[in-house]
Design a protein around this nucleic acid. Structure first.
Length: 417
RNA sequence: GGGGGGGUUCCCGAGCGGUCAAAGGGAACAGACUGUAAAUCUGUCGGCAGACGCCUUCGGAGGUUCGAAUCCUCCCCCCCCCA
């Protein structure tokens, strides 16, 4: 397969970039990828109308697949979401209705469209909902058709099952493997799909799918897994001050998204450049040579590249400018999170700073806001405020706004009108 | 169905009649340091209140006590062993 990626083959690129954890029959897969347009898929979770950063890795996996001339399929687990996943022993994952799933699916597809070219061409991506082939399948019919193909012995031997045995495993969860295996088989049968990719925790499920497909369609299919992504600090990807980092600009403003990447641990920069950008190898290797404070240069490139991929050049530039302005101490910050505040609120005695801080979402409770003020963490128009009883008045308005700041990185502007 | 062990604040995990908003650790947030990094040190970490203090939390519902996360009853859920 010819390509303009700068890498001879898909597997070469995946390996160099750090996507390659393990793979079934690598030689055969390499040969297949070399010979023909291969259809490969990854499953996504439709429990929200937006994906978050954790899904970026598989998304990029599909991107590379497509860039190397193959056909990506993103499959959304509508069927599994309908059932709900009781994995965590404390709370059930919400069971979603078909309508909710449809909505979520639309939102997710729009996001994936930033990365993958969907369409009808031979190499255009597809987005499918497994509820389409699952929801009307009766239990008895399914059992009769496929039950004999699954070996309980084998399923119990899977690591994914074994590790759960200690903490308990419900039948529904046990069945996920079967549902996912069935997905792979259907995709192979109906779409000629021959590759499933996923996180390393999916290995067992992927293998089950390969086994089932072999038995049903007699086709040889392959699996490839990505390493489990952790930050250098040992935490899960995508957690930030305000919770998960989402791909949706409504949930995570572009500015915050950009800042997430600017703030990554030095030790993660190299890996992230390789995994989450499409930057050419030479450029990445250049950036990797930077040391000390110069690493920030690499982070800027990282943040710009990742943000541009998702939100486009224009929004990225705006975020960059806002960040530069804020951290240089300057005032222009049109893209800083802001909220409206009627001038009347500031009249008379004024508006309690603590209330303003909570109302605009900087803090969740007045107690928290109070503590932060006491710790000298809050600034109004750049000036540290130590008085928790501080009132905001018209005198605090500069250019139609009051600039609130928490710590070094959190900003919010009250637009007084 | 029987026997045993459990469900504690974001997570792990102590507490087992008052001194418990609940040890300790982790995560998180802030301050100092710095490079919008890491490491380190310090502080904070249920809600309301300027403060005294008040209120809500220890699976759920009742009860015993002046007083319960701690004791009793019933219920729900999880794990282990036996059937």
């Amino acid at each position: 397969m010819s390509n303009d990626t700068g890498f001879p083959t898909l597997l070469d690129e995946l390996k160099w970039r750090g996507f390659f954890e393990q793979c079934t029959d690598e030689d055969a897969l390499a040969g297949l990828l070399d010979e023909e347009t291969v259809t490969g898929y990854i499953g996504f979770d439709p429990t929200a109308d937006s994906l978050h950063i954790g899904s970026l890795l598989p998304i990029m996996g599909l991107v590379h697949l497509q860039r190397h001339g193959h056909r990506p399929i993103a499959i959304v687990g509508g069927a599994t979401a309908m059932v709900g996943d009781p994995t965590g022993r404390t709370e059930l994952r919400r069971m979603l209705t078909l309508e909710q799933i449809e909505e979520n699916l639309a939102g997710i597809k729009a996001q994936l469209a930033h990365y993958i070219r969907f369409g009808d061409g031979p190499r255009d991506g597809l987005m499918l909902n497994n509820a389409d082939w699952m929801k009307d399948y009766g239990y008895l019919a399914f059992l009769r058709d496929f039950g004999s193909h699954f070996s309980v012995n084998q399923m119990l031997a899977r690591d994914s099952v074994k590790t759960r045995m200690e903490h308990g495993l419900s039948f529904i969860e046990f069945n996920y493997m079967i549902l996912q295996a069935y997905d792979f088989m259907v995709l192979n049968r109906d779409f000629g799909c021959r590759l499933q990719m996923g996180g390393s925790d999916q290995w067992g499920n992927i293998c089950s799918g390969i086994d089932l497909t072999r038995r049903v369609t007699r086709d040889e299919v392959y699996g490839l897994t990505f390493p489990l992504m952790m930050t250098a600090a040992g935490t899960k990807m995508g957690k930030s001050a305000s919770g998960a980092v989402w791909l949706s600009a409504e949930r995570t403003p572009v500015y915050d998204f950009y800042q997430y990447w600017i703030n990554v641990d030095d030790r993660d920069v190299s890996r992230f450049l390789r995994l989450y950008t499409l930057m050419p190898r030479e450029r990445i290797e250049e950036l990797e040579r930077l040391e000390g404070a110069d690493v920030r240069e690499a982070k800027r490139e990282l943040a710009r590249a990742v943000t541009t991929l998702l939100h486009g050049a224009e929004a990225t530039e705006a975020a960059e400018k806002a960040a530069a302005a804020l951290f240089a101490g300057a005032a222009d910050a049109s893209t800083v999170p802001s909220s409206e505040r009627p001038a009347a609120d500031l009249a008379g005695e004024g508006l309690a700073l603590l209330d303003a801080l909570v109302d605009c979402g900087l803090f969740q409770s007045k107690g928290e806001a109070r503590r932060m003020v006491r710790q000298q963490a809050v600034r109004v128009n750049g000036e540290v405020v130590g008085d928790e009883l501080r009132l905001l008045t018209a005198a605090d308005v500069r250019d139609g706004r009051i600039a609130l700041q928490v710590g070094k990185k959190k900003h919010h502007h009250l637009l007084v009108g």
